[in-house]
């Protein structure tokens, strides 16, 4: 029990992360309750995905896990897997924007919407809809923070370390919200499903390359863990190999899961379009069988 409490104590407390996680959970809960009153239930699975997604990101940043990730390369790679892939994927799977908006007081929600749609935010909105840019940033950040020299400094310098983790988390959220957007692309002006499939496959290749490179490498590239001390005396090359496999296999699997969700979204959109085109088709069919 004491060990568990110790584990939950943040290694480096961040009011922003703790407050952000709490606020998002409260808003989601309020929003879900309000939508249920309107007869639009969010449902158990969506809520679960959101809560698990947020909590997983919180745990890897605000518990002793954070300390472990500073002192073992492969644990650091798992941390980034959660921050960049798993956590944001689950959050996006919950389709949270509308629910979070419903959780806010109406005036605040419409205020935020007005600001987000205002001209100064146009470049940001534009970037959000650039698939190639999204893919380049998503993969580029992985390569950037794995550059041995920068990685070394990021592990020594707290602001740089925080920048690294924040950039992974925020990019992960933007990327997966973009990829798993359930709205009809024709109406929302988002990237079509075919494009998303191509993008998800495209980002797998460079992740396999860097993951396999680290996984098969025989020389230690990340000295900082020896310099600052490992959690236990694991061989540096072994540590790097496990880290490489983590960067390669589960990260690529997330693209496969992404593909499945995109295909499902595509089928849902098709059905919605069909029933919009023939509003009476369903009625006639059910009438025929009765």
């Amino acid at each position: 029990m004491e060990e568990f409490v110790h584990f939950l104590t943040p290694y480096e407390f961040s009011p922003t992360i703790a407050g952000g996680a709490l606020l998002s959970l409260v808003l989601f809960g309020r929003g879900a309750a309000r939508l249920r009153e309107q007869g639009r239930s969010v449902g158990f699975w969506r809520s679960l995905a959101f809560v698990v997604g947020v909590l997983s990101m919180y745990v890897v940043m605000q518990t002793q896990y954070d300390y472990w990730s500073q002192h073992m390369f492969f644990i650091h790679r798992v941390q980034h897997l959660v921050l960049h892939h798993l956590g944001p994927f689950l959050v996006a799977l919950a389709v949270p924007i509308e629910v979070l908006g419903a959780g806010l007081p109406d005036r605040v929600a419409s205020g935020i919407q007005r600001v987000a749609l205002s001209p100064p935010f146009a470049p940001l909105r534009w970037m959000f809809h650039q698939p190639v840019l999204q893919a380049v940033v998503f993969v580029g950040l992985i390569y950037l923070w794995l550059s041995p020299e920068l990685h070394f400094y990021a592990m020594l310098n707290i602001p740089l370390y925080n920048l690294m983790n924040w950039s992974m988390a925020i990019d992960g959220l933007i990327f997966w919200l973009f990829m798993l957007d359930p709205r009809d692309p024709r109406q929302a002006g988002t990237l079509g499903y075919g494009g998303r499939v191509l993008l998800l496959i495209a980002i797998v290749i460079p992740q396999i390359l860097i993951g396999a490179y680290l996984g098969f490498s025989q020389e230690s590239l990340y000295d900082v863990y020896a310099v600052c001390g490992r959690l236990w005396p694991l061989d540096p090359v072994t540590d790097q190999q496990i880290g490489g496999l983590t960067t390669w296999i589960p990260a690529s699997m997330m693209s496969v899961l992404g593909l499945l969700v995109v295909i499902r979204r595509s089928a849902q959109t098709d059905r919605a379009r069909e029933s919009a085109a023939h509003p009476n088709a369903k009625l006639q069919a059910s009438g025929g069988t009765a």
Partner: peptide, 16 residues
């Protein structure tokens, strides 16, 4: 980093 250049097929690498 030695070896990263071997992944040089990616134009991105030089940018990052």
């Amino acid at each position: 980093p030695q070896g990263f250049t071997r992944l040089g097929a990616l134009g991105r690498k030089s940018v990052t």
